[in-house]
Design a protein around this nucleic acid. Sequence first.
DNA 1: ATACTCTAACTAGTATACAAGGATACTTAG
DNA 2: CTAAGTATCCTTGTATACTAGTTAGAGTAT
Lengths: 230, 230
Amino acid sequence: MSIQIDALRDKRGLIRDFVYDTLKKNIMELRLEPGRSISEKELVEMLQVSRTPIREALVKLSQEELIETTPQKGSVISLIDLQHAEESRFLRKTLESAVVREACELLGKEQVLHLQNLVSLQELCVSEQNYGRLFELDEEFHKSIMIGCGRARTWGLIQQMATHDNRIRFLRLASDSNWQIILAQHRGIVSAIKEKDPDQAEKMLRDHLELVVIEKENLKQKYAKFFKSI
Amino acid sequence: MSIQIDALRDKRGLIRDFVYDTLKKNIMELRLEPGRSISEKELVEMLQVSRTPIREALVKLSQEELIETTPQKGSVISLIDLQHAEESRFLRKTLESAVVREACELLGKEQVLHLQNLVSLQELCVSEQNYGRLFELDEEFHKSIMIGCGRARTWGLIQQMATHDNRIRFLRLASDSNWQIILAQHRGIVSAIKEKDPDQAEKMLRDHLELVVIEKENLKQKYAKFFKSI
DNA sequence: ATACTCTAACTAGTATACAAGGATACTTAG
DNA sequence: CTAAGTATCCTTGTATACTAGTTAGAGTAT
Protein backbone atom coordinates (compact mmCIF):
# COMPACT_ATOMS: atom_id res chain seq x y z
CA MET A 1 0.00 0.00 0.00
CA SER A 2 2.80 2.41 0.81
CA ILE A 3 4.21 1.80 -2.63
CA GLN A 4 1.09 3.26 -4.19
CA ILE A 5 1.34 6.22 -1.86
CA ASP A 6 4.91 6.90 -2.92
CA ALA A 7 3.75 7.14 -6.50
CA LEU A 8 1.19 9.76 -5.46
CA ARG A 9 3.72 12.01 -3.82
CA ASP A 10 4.61 13.45 -7.22
CA LYS A 11 1.26 15.09 -7.72
CA ARG A 12 0.27 17.10 -4.71
CA GLY A 13 -3.32 16.85 -3.60
CA LEU A 14 -3.85 13.21 -4.33
CA ILE A 15 -2.81 11.77 -1.00
CA ARG A 16 -5.86 12.98 0.88
CA ASP A 17 -8.14 11.55 -1.79
CA PHE A 18 -6.27 8.28 -1.74
CA VAL A 19 -6.63 8.00 2.02
CA TYR A 20 -10.31 8.84 1.73
CA ASP A 21 -10.97 6.33 -1.02
CA THR A 22 -9.00 3.61 0.69
CA LEU A 23 -10.75 4.04 4.01
CA LYS A 24 -14.16 4.29 2.43
CA LYS A 25 -13.67 1.15 0.40
CA ASN A 26 -12.43 -0.77 3.41
CA ILE A 27 -15.32 0.41 5.53
CA MET A 28 -17.90 -0.40 2.90
CA GLU A 29 -16.54 -3.88 2.38
CA LEU A 30 -16.36 -4.44 6.11
CA ARG A 31 -12.65 -5.03 6.27
CA LEU A 32 -12.79 -2.20 8.77
CA GLU A 33 -15.46 -3.59 11.02
CA PRO A 34 -18.25 -1.41 12.43
CA GLY A 35 -17.44 -0.54 16.00
CA ARG A 36 -13.70 -0.90 15.49
CA SER A 37 -11.83 2.05 16.86
CA ILE A 38 -9.22 3.57 14.63
CA SER A 39 -6.69 6.19 15.59
CA GLU A 40 -4.88 8.67 13.42
CA LYS A 41 -1.61 7.27 14.62
CA GLU A 42 -2.56 3.83 13.40
CA LEU A 43 -3.38 5.23 9.98
CA VAL A 44 -0.13 7.17 9.91
CA GLU A 45 1.81 3.97 10.41
CA MET A 46 -0.37 1.99 8.06
CA LEU A 47 -0.28 4.45 5.18
CA GLN A 48 3.07 6.15 5.84
CA VAL A 49 1.55 9.59 5.53
CA SER A 50 1.42 12.48 7.95
CA ARG A 51 -1.63 13.25 10.04
CA THR A 52 -2.85 16.22 8.05
CA PRO A 53 -4.18 14.46 4.94
CA ILE A 54 -5.48 11.69 7.16
CA ARG A 55 -7.39 14.12 9.31
CA GLU A 56 -8.92 15.74 6.26
CA ALA A 57 -10.03 12.38 4.96
CA LEU A 58 -11.54 11.61 8.34
CA VAL A 59 -13.45 14.88 8.27
CA LYS A 60 -15.04 13.86 5.00
CA LEU A 61 -15.87 10.40 6.26
CA SER A 62 -17.39 11.76 9.42
CA GLN A 63 -19.55 14.09 7.34
CA GLU A 64 -20.92 10.99 5.64
CA GLU A 65 -21.56 9.27 8.97
CA LEU A 66 -19.05 6.55 8.18
CA ILE A 67 -17.00 7.25 11.27
CA GLU A 68 -17.68 9.04 14.51
CA THR A 69 -15.02 11.15 16.12
CA THR A 70 -15.00 12.19 19.76
CA PRO A 71 -12.61 14.97 20.73
CA GLN A 72 -9.60 13.80 22.66
CA LYS A 73 -10.87 10.23 22.61
CA GLY A 74 -10.73 8.77 19.17
CA SER A 75 -12.62 7.67 16.11
CA VAL A 76 -14.81 4.65 15.62
CA ILE A 77 -16.16 3.06 12.47
CA SER A 78 -19.89 3.79 12.65
CA LEU A 79 -22.09 0.95 13.70
CA ILE A 80 -24.65 0.01 11.08
CA ASP A 81 -27.77 1.99 11.81
CA LEU A 82 -30.91 0.17 10.69
CA GLN A 83 -32.93 3.34 10.71
CA HIS A 84 -30.33 4.99 8.50
CA ALA A 85 -30.49 2.03 6.15
CA GLU A 86 -34.26 2.10 6.00
CA GLU A 87 -34.24 5.79 5.22
CA SER A 88 -31.75 5.26 2.43
CA ARG A 89 -33.95 2.60 0.87
CA PHE A 90 -36.89 4.97 1.06
CA LEU A 91 -34.79 7.66 -0.57
CA ARG A 92 -33.67 5.41 -3.35
CA LYS A 93 -37.09 4.00 -4.06
CA THR A 94 -38.73 7.39 -4.13
CA LEU A 95 -36.15 9.06 -6.33
CA GLU A 96 -35.59 6.25 -8.77
CA SER A 97 -39.32 5.82 -9.25
CA ALA A 98 -39.62 9.45 -10.20
CA VAL A 99 -36.60 9.37 -12.48
CA VAL A 100 -37.63 6.26 -14.33
CA ARG A 101 -40.81 8.07 -15.35
CA GLU A 102 -38.70 10.84 -16.80
CA ALA A 103 -36.54 8.23 -18.47
CA CYS A 104 -39.49 7.18 -20.64
CA GLU A 105 -39.36 10.60 -22.24
CA LEU A 106 -35.72 11.49 -22.03
CA LEU A 107 -33.77 8.41 -22.98
CA GLY A 108 -32.93 8.06 -26.63
CA LYS A 109 -32.39 4.98 -28.73
CA GLU A 110 -28.69 4.64 -28.10
CA GLN A 111 -29.21 4.94 -24.36
CA VAL A 112 -31.86 2.24 -24.36
CA LEU A 113 -29.45 0.15 -26.35
CA HIS A 114 -26.81 0.71 -23.71
CA LEU A 115 -29.21 -0.54 -21.07
CA GLN A 116 -29.98 -3.61 -23.12
CA ASN A 117 -26.30 -4.27 -23.44
CA LEU A 118 -25.89 -4.06 -19.70
CA VAL A 119 -28.65 -6.60 -19.18
CA SER A 120 -27.01 -8.91 -21.68
CA LEU A 121 -23.74 -8.64 -19.84
CA GLN A 122 -25.58 -9.41 -16.64
CA GLU A 123 -27.01 -12.57 -18.18
CA LEU A 124 -23.50 -13.56 -19.11
CA CYS A 125 -22.34 -13.06 -15.54
CA VAL A 126 -25.16 -15.17 -14.20
CA SER A 127 -24.23 -18.05 -16.46
CA GLU A 128 -20.62 -17.65 -15.34
CA GLN A 129 -21.68 -17.22 -11.71
CA ASN A 130 -19.52 -14.11 -11.49
CA TYR A 131 -21.57 -12.46 -8.77
CA GLY A 132 -19.09 -9.76 -7.87
CA ARG A 133 -19.13 -8.37 -11.39
CA LEU A 134 -22.89 -8.83 -11.48
CA PHE A 135 -23.24 -6.64 -8.44
CA GLU A 136 -21.29 -3.90 -10.19
CA LEU A 137 -23.32 -4.24 -13.37
CA ASP A 138 -26.51 -3.95 -11.34
CA GLU A 139 -25.31 -0.64 -9.93
CA GLU A 140 -24.20 0.43 -13.38
CA PHE A 141 -27.66 -0.28 -14.74
CA HIS A 142 -29.43 1.93 -12.23
CA LYS A 143 -26.78 4.59 -12.50
CA SER A 144 -27.08 4.76 -16.28
CA ILE A 145 -30.78 5.49 -16.08
CA MET A 146 -30.22 8.32 -13.61
CA ILE A 147 -27.29 9.85 -15.46
CA GLY A 148 -29.15 9.62 -18.74
CA CYS A 149 -31.87 11.80 -17.24
CA GLY A 150 -29.38 14.36 -16.06
CA ARG A 151 -29.65 13.31 -12.43
CA ALA A 152 -26.01 12.72 -11.69
CA ARG A 153 -26.10 14.62 -8.42
CA THR A 154 -29.21 12.78 -7.33
CA TRP A 155 -27.40 9.53 -7.93
CA GLY A 156 -24.51 10.87 -5.90
CA LEU A 157 -26.80 11.63 -3.00
CA ILE A 158 -28.32 8.18 -3.14
CA GLN A 159 -24.84 6.72 -3.01
CA GLN A 160 -23.85 8.97 -0.16
CA MET A 161 -26.87 7.90 1.81
CA ALA A 162 -26.49 4.25 0.92
CA THR A 163 -23.43 3.66 3.05
CA HIS A 164 -25.24 1.88 5.84
CA ASP A 165 -27.61 -0.07 3.63
CA ASN A 166 -24.79 -1.16 1.34
CA ARG A 167 -22.91 -2.62 4.26
CA ILE A 168 -25.96 -4.71 5.06
CA ARG A 169 -26.15 -5.79 1.46
CA PHE A 170 -22.49 -6.72 1.65
CA LEU A 171 -23.15 -8.88 4.69
CA ARG A 172 -25.62 -10.96 2.77
CA LEU A 173 -23.82 -10.88 -0.54
CA ALA A 174 -22.85 -14.48 -0.14
CA SER A 175 -26.44 -15.55 0.29
CA ASP A 176 -28.36 -16.53 -2.77
CA SER A 177 -30.08 -13.70 -4.51
CA ASN A 178 -32.52 -14.81 -7.11
CA TRP A 179 -30.75 -13.22 -10.01
CA GLN A 180 -33.13 -14.67 -12.57
CA ILE A 181 -35.96 -12.61 -11.19
CA ILE A 182 -33.77 -9.55 -10.97
CA LEU A 183 -32.73 -9.87 -14.59
CA ALA A 184 -36.31 -10.34 -15.70
CA GLN A 185 -37.20 -7.14 -13.88
CA HIS A 186 -34.33 -5.30 -15.54
CA ARG A 187 -35.57 -6.42 -18.92
CA GLY A 188 -39.07 -5.33 -17.98
CA ILE A 189 -37.88 -1.89 -16.97
CA VAL A 190 -35.95 -1.43 -20.19
CA SER A 191 -38.86 -2.42 -22.37
CA ALA A 192 -41.23 -0.16 -20.42
CA ILE A 193 -38.83 2.72 -21.04
CA LYS A 194 -38.59 1.75 -24.68
CA GLU A 195 -42.38 1.69 -24.98
CA LYS A 196 -42.52 5.02 -23.15
CA ASP A 197 -44.91 3.66 -20.55
CA PRO A 198 -44.12 5.55 -17.32
CA ASP A 199 -46.73 3.83 -15.17
CA GLN A 200 -45.45 0.41 -16.07
CA ALA A 201 -41.83 1.51 -15.68
CA GLU A 202 -42.44 2.90 -12.23
CA LYS A 203 -44.36 -0.16 -11.14
CA MET A 204 -41.62 -2.52 -12.29
CA LEU A 205 -38.93 -0.44 -10.64
CA ARG A 206 -40.76 -0.37 -7.34
CA ASP A 207 -41.24 -4.12 -7.42
CA HIS A 208 -37.60 -4.45 -8.28
CA LEU A 209 -36.33 -2.35 -5.38
CA GLU A 210 -38.73 -3.94 -2.96
CA LEU A 211 -37.61 -7.40 -3.92
CA VAL A 212 -34.57 -6.91 -1.78
CA VAL A 213 -36.23 -8.03 1.37
CA ILE A 214 -33.65 -8.35 4.01
CA GLU A 215 -33.95 -10.56 7.01
CA LYS A 216 -32.74 -7.81 9.22
CA GLU A 217 -33.32 -9.71 12.41
CA ASN A 218 -31.38 -12.64 11.12
CA LEU A 219 -28.37 -10.57 10.21
CA LYS A 220 -28.63 -8.49 13.31
CA GLN A 221 -28.40 -11.56 15.50
CA LYS A 222 -25.60 -13.09 13.52
CA TYR A 223 -23.50 -9.93 13.49
CA ALA A 224 -24.91 -8.28 16.59
CA LYS A 225 -21.80 -6.29 17.38
CA PHE A 226 -21.90 -4.55 13.99
CA PHE A 227 -25.29 -3.02 14.61
CA LYS A 228 -26.38 0.00 16.53
CA SER A 229 -28.55 -1.28 19.31
CA ILE A 230 -31.08 1.48 19.77
CA MET B 1 -15.75 38.11 15.29
CA SER B 2 -12.41 37.28 16.85
CA ILE B 3 -13.97 37.82 20.26
CA GLN B 4 -16.32 34.94 19.67
CA ILE B 5 -13.42 32.81 18.53
CA ASP B 6 -11.50 33.51 21.71
CA ALA B 7 -14.45 32.24 23.70
CA LEU B 8 -14.34 28.99 21.72
CA ARG B 9 -10.71 28.30 22.46
CA ASP B 10 -11.69 26.87 25.80
CA LYS B 11 -13.49 23.91 24.32
CA ARG B 12 -11.34 22.21 21.77
CA GLY B 13 -13.03 21.07 18.62
CA LEU B 14 -15.39 23.97 18.20
CA ILE B 15 -13.22 26.25 16.12
CA ARG B 16 -13.47 24.17 12.98
CA ASP B 17 -17.24 24.04 13.30
CA PHE B 18 -17.41 27.75 13.90
CA VAL B 19 -15.36 28.47 10.79
CA TYR B 20 -17.55 26.10 8.80
CA ASP B 21 -20.80 27.61 10.03
CA THR B 22 -19.60 31.14 9.53
CA LEU B 23 -18.41 30.56 6.00
CA LYS B 24 -21.52 28.61 5.04
CA LYS B 25 -23.82 31.29 6.35
CA ASN B 26 -21.92 34.02 4.57
CA ILE B 27 -21.92 32.09 1.33
CA MET B 28 -25.61 31.27 1.54
CA GLU B 29 -26.54 34.87 2.22
CA LEU B 30 -24.29 36.06 -0.57
CA ARG B 31 -22.05 38.19 1.57
CA LEU B 32 -19.34 36.02 0.07
CA GLU B 33 -20.23 36.47 -3.57
CA PRO B 34 -20.20 33.60 -6.04
CA GLY B 35 -17.02 33.75 -8.06
CA ARG B 36 -15.09 35.57 -5.36
CA SER B 37 -11.77 33.95 -4.72
CA ILE B 38 -10.84 33.34 -1.14
CA SER B 39 -7.49 32.24 0.21
CA GLU B 40 -6.67 30.45 3.41
CA LYS B 41 -4.38 33.29 4.35
CA GLU B 42 -7.24 35.75 4.07
CA LEU B 43 -9.37 33.61 6.36
CA VAL B 44 -6.51 33.25 8.80
CA GLU B 45 -6.30 37.01 9.13
CA MET B 46 -10.04 37.48 9.18
CA LEU B 47 -10.77 34.84 11.82
CA GLN B 48 -7.48 34.88 13.74
CA VAL B 49 -7.19 31.12 13.59
CA SER B 50 -4.49 28.91 12.17
CA ARG B 51 -4.76 27.25 8.80
CA THR B 52 -5.58 23.76 10.02
CA PRO B 53 -9.17 24.26 11.21
CA ILE B 54 -9.76 26.53 8.26
CA ARG B 55 -8.59 23.88 5.85
CA GLU B 56 -10.82 21.29 7.44
CA ALA B 57 -13.81 23.59 7.15
CA LEU B 58 -12.93 24.18 3.50
CA VAL B 59 -12.82 20.44 2.91
CA LYS B 60 -16.37 20.14 4.16
CA LEU B 61 -17.56 23.09 2.10
CA SER B 62 -15.95 21.74 -1.01
CA GLN B 63 -17.67 18.40 -0.44
CA GLU B 64 -20.95 20.29 -0.56
CA GLU B 65 -19.98 22.10 -3.76
CA LEU B 66 -20.03 25.46 -2.02
CA ILE B 67 -16.45 26.21 -2.92
CA GLU B 68 -14.08 24.86 -5.51
CA THR B 69 -10.43 24.38 -4.70
CA THR B 70 -7.69 24.05 -7.26
CA PRO B 71 -4.36 22.72 -6.00
CA GLN B 72 -1.71 25.38 -5.61
CA LYS B 73 -4.03 27.98 -7.06
CA GLY B 74 -6.78 28.83 -4.66
CA SER B 75 -10.39 28.49 -3.72
CA VAL B 76 -13.39 30.17 -5.25
CA ILE B 77 -16.94 30.51 -4.00
CA SER B 78 -18.91 28.32 -6.38
CA LEU B 79 -20.86 30.08 -9.05
CA ILE B 80 -24.56 29.38 -8.86
CA ASP B 81 -25.27 26.40 -11.07
CA LEU B 82 -28.79 26.50 -12.51
CA GLN B 83 -28.71 22.81 -13.27
CA HIS B 84 -27.75 22.10 -9.70
CA ALA B 85 -30.61 24.28 -8.50
CA GLU B 86 -33.08 22.57 -10.78
CA GLU B 87 -32.00 19.16 -9.56
CA SER B 88 -32.38 20.23 -5.97
CA ARG B 89 -35.94 21.38 -6.64
CA PHE B 90 -36.70 18.07 -8.26
CA LEU B 91 -35.23 16.31 -5.25
CA ARG B 92 -37.25 18.32 -2.81
CA LYS B 93 -40.50 18.00 -4.70
CA THR B 94 -40.15 14.28 -5.11
CA LEU B 95 -39.18 13.52 -1.55
CA GLU B 96 -41.56 15.86 0.19
CA SER B 97 -44.46 14.58 -1.88
CA ALA B 98 -43.70 11.07 -0.76
CA VAL B 99 -43.24 12.03 2.86
CA VAL B 100 -46.42 14.06 3.09
CA ARG B 101 -48.32 10.91 2.15
CA GLU B 102 -46.70 9.12 5.03
CA ALA B 103 -47.50 12.08 7.24
CA CYS B 104 -51.20 11.39 6.84
CA GLU B 105 -50.68 8.15 8.69
CA LEU B 106 -47.81 8.95 10.97
CA LEU B 107 -48.49 12.36 12.42
CA GLY B 108 -50.41 12.42 15.67
CA LYS B 109 -52.72 15.03 17.08
CA GLU B 110 -50.06 17.02 18.90
CA GLN B 111 -47.89 17.14 15.80
CA VAL B 112 -50.76 18.41 13.68
CA LEU B 113 -51.38 20.98 16.37
CA HIS B 114 -47.76 22.05 16.14
CA LEU B 115 -48.16 22.58 12.40
CA GLN B 116 -51.27 24.63 12.96
CA ASN B 117 -49.39 26.75 15.45
CA LEU B 118 -46.66 27.34 12.92
CA VAL B 119 -49.19 28.51 10.35
CA SER B 120 -50.71 30.85 12.90
CA LEU B 121 -47.32 32.30 13.62
CA GLN B 122 -46.82 32.74 9.92
CA GLU B 123 -50.05 34.68 9.67
CA LEU B 124 -48.81 36.90 12.42
CA CYS B 125 -45.58 37.55 10.55
CA VAL B 126 -47.46 38.46 7.39
CA SER B 127 -49.50 41.02 9.22
CA GLU B 128 -46.32 42.41 10.73
CA GLN B 129 -44.51 42.18 7.39
CA ASN B 130 -41.65 40.38 9.08
CA TYR B 131 -40.55 38.49 6.01
CA GLY B 132 -37.22 37.30 7.35
CA ARG B 133 -38.88 35.44 10.20
CA LEU B 134 -41.56 34.23 7.81
CA PHE B 135 -38.90 32.65 5.67
CA GLU B 136 -37.60 30.75 8.68
CA LEU B 137 -41.07 29.66 9.71
CA ASP B 138 -41.70 28.38 6.22
CA GLU B 139 -38.63 26.19 6.46
CA GLU B 140 -39.64 25.13 9.95
CA PHE B 141 -43.04 24.07 8.66
CA HIS B 142 -41.64 21.76 6.02
CA LYS B 143 -38.96 20.49 8.34
CA SER B 144 -41.49 19.58 11.02
CA ILE B 145 -43.42 17.38 8.64
CA MET B 146 -40.29 15.51 7.59
CA ILE B 147 -38.91 15.10 11.11
CA GLY B 148 -42.29 13.96 12.34
CA CYS B 149 -42.17 11.11 9.86
CA GLY B 150 -38.71 10.10 10.96
CA ARG B 151 -37.05 11.52 7.87
CA ALA B 152 -34.49 13.73 9.54
CA ARG B 153 -31.66 12.55 7.33
CA THR B 154 -33.75 13.01 4.22
CA TRP B 155 -34.36 16.58 5.28
CA GLY B 156 -30.64 16.97 5.83
CA LEU B 157 -29.93 15.79 2.30
CA ILE B 158 -32.48 18.18 0.86
CA GLN B 159 -30.78 20.99 2.74
CA GLN B 160 -27.37 19.88 1.60
CA MET B 161 -28.52 19.88 -1.99
CA ALA B 162 -30.41 23.15 -1.67
CA THR B 163 -27.34 25.32 -1.43
CA HIS B 164 -27.49 26.61 -4.97
CA ASP B 165 -31.25 26.96 -5.13
CA ASN B 166 -31.37 28.74 -1.80
CA ARG B 167 -28.91 31.32 -3.04
CA ILE B 168 -31.26 32.02 -5.92
CA ARG B 169 -34.16 32.31 -3.50
CA PHE B 170 -32.08 34.73 -1.48
CA LEU B 171 -31.48 36.87 -4.55
CA ARG B 172 -35.19 37.35 -5.03
CA LEU B 173 -36.11 37.49 -1.37
CA ALA B 174 -36.82 41.18 -1.63
CA SER B 175 -39.30 40.66 -4.41
CA ASP B 176 -42.90 40.18 -3.49
CA SER B 177 -43.87 36.62 -2.82
CA ASN B 178 -47.57 36.16 -2.55
CA TRP B 179 -47.58 35.02 1.02
CA GLN B 180 -51.36 34.87 1.21
CA ILE B 181 -51.42 32.06 -1.30
CA ILE B 182 -48.54 30.32 0.42
CA LEU B 183 -50.31 30.45 3.76
CA ALA B 184 -53.51 29.15 2.26
CA GLN B 185 -51.57 26.23 0.86
CA HIS B 186 -49.99 25.54 4.22
CA ARG B 187 -53.41 25.46 5.80
CA GLY B 188 -54.61 23.13 3.06
CA ILE B 189 -51.72 20.76 3.61
CA VAL B 190 -52.31 20.64 7.34
CA SER B 191 -56.00 19.92 6.98
CA ALA B 192 -55.33 17.22 4.37
CA ILE B 193 -52.94 15.59 6.84
CA LYS B 194 -55.51 15.96 9.56
CA GLU B 195 -58.18 14.33 7.40
CA LYS B 196 -55.69 11.61 6.46
CA ASP B 197 -56.15 12.23 2.75
CA PRO B 198 -52.81 11.41 1.13
CA ASP B 199 -53.85 12.20 -2.45
CA GLN B 200 -55.05 15.63 -1.51
CA ALA B 201 -52.00 16.26 0.67
CA GLU B 202 -49.62 15.34 -2.10
CA LYS B 203 -51.47 17.43 -4.64
CA MET B 204 -51.44 20.48 -2.41
CA LEU B 205 -47.79 20.08 -1.60
CA ARG B 206 -46.83 19.77 -5.25
CA ASP B 207 -48.79 22.88 -6.09
CA HIS B 208 -47.13 24.59 -3.20
CA LEU B 209 -43.59 23.77 -4.23
CA GLU B 210 -44.27 24.53 -7.86
CA LEU B 211 -45.63 27.93 -6.99
CA VAL B 212 -42.12 29.17 -6.58
CA VAL B 213 -41.64 29.96 -10.21
CA ILE B 214 -38.43 31.80 -10.59
CA GLU B 215 -37.69 34.14 -13.42
CA LYS B 216 -34.31 32.58 -13.89
CA GLU B 217 -33.48 34.54 -16.97
CA ASN B 218 -34.30 37.77 -15.24
CA LEU B 219 -32.05 37.05 -12.31
CA LYS B 220 -29.36 35.59 -14.47
CA GLN B 221 -29.14 38.78 -16.47
CA LYS B 222 -29.24 41.01 -13.46
CA TYR B 223 -26.55 39.11 -11.57
CA ALA B 224 -24.77 37.55 -14.53
CA LYS B 225 -21.42 37.27 -12.82
CA PHE B 226 -22.90 35.08 -10.06
CA PHE B 227 -24.03 32.37 -12.44
CA LYS B 228 -22.23 29.54 -14.08
CA SER B 229 -22.37 30.22 -17.77
CA ILE B 230 -22.56 26.77 -19.29
C1' DA C 1 6.83 48.08 -29.35
C1' DT C 2 6.53 43.22 -28.63
C1' DA C 3 7.51 38.82 -27.24
C1' DC C 4 9.94 35.96 -24.28
C1' DT C 5 12.28 34.45 -20.00
C1' DC C 6 13.27 34.34 -15.48
C1' DT C 7 12.41 35.59 -10.80
C1' DA C 8 9.88 36.59 -6.81
C1' DA C 9 5.78 36.40 -4.45
C1' DC C 10 1.89 34.21 -4.14
C1' DT C 11 -1.12 29.68 -3.59
C1' DA C 12 -2.46 25.13 -1.33
C1' DG C 13 -0.48 20.38 0.12
C1' DT C 14 2.12 18.03 3.54
C1' DA C 15 4.84 17.24 7.74
C1' DT C 16 5.75 18.17 12.35
C1' DA C 17 5.56 20.41 16.91
C1' DC C 18 2.83 21.64 20.73
C1' DA C 19 -1.54 21.85 23.65
C1' DA C 20 -5.26 19.97 26.23
C1' DG C 21 -8.65 16.67 27.55
C1' DG C 22 -9.50 11.49 28.67
C1' DA C 23 -8.27 6.73 30.40
C1' DT C 24 -5.80 3.79 33.08
C1' DA C 25 -2.75 1.94 36.25
C1' DC C 26 -0.17 2.63 40.17
C1' DT C 27 0.58 4.76 44.62
C1' DT C 28 -0.78 6.19 48.96
C1' DA C 29 -3.82 7.43 52.70
C1' DG C 30 -7.65 5.81 55.39
C1' DC D 1 -8.45 -4.06 51.73
C1' DT D 2 -10.53 -0.11 49.67
C1' DA D 3 -10.79 4.16 47.66
C1' DA D 4 -9.18 8.43 46.30
C1' DG D 5 -5.72 10.83 43.94
C1' DT D 6 -2.03 11.44 40.82
C1' DA D 7 1.21 10.53 37.20
C1' DT D 8 1.70 8.99 32.68
C1' DC D 9 0.44 7.79 28.35
C1' DC D 10 -2.90 7.80 25.27
C1' DT D 11 -6.18 10.45 22.10
C1' DT D 12 -7.51 14.46 18.92
C1' DG D 13 -7.30 19.75 18.26
C1' DT D 14 -4.49 23.61 16.88
C1' DA D 15 -0.39 26.11 15.32
C1' DT D 16 3.56 26.43 12.53
C1' DA D 17 7.33 25.06 9.41
C1' DC D 18 8.43 23.33 5.09
C1' DT D 19 7.47 21.85 0.00
C1' DA D 20 6.09 22.38 -4.51
C1' DG D 21 3.22 24.14 -8.09
C1' DT D 22 1.17 28.78 -10.25
C1' DT D 23 1.12 33.30 -11.68
C1' DA D 24 2.11 37.81 -12.61
C1' DG D 25 5.37 41.15 -13.59
C1' DA D 26 9.93 43.12 -14.32
C1' DG D 27 13.56 43.06 -17.38
C1' DT D 28 15.86 41.81 -21.57
C1' DA D 29 16.44 40.55 -26.26
C1' DT D 30 14.52 40.93 -30.80
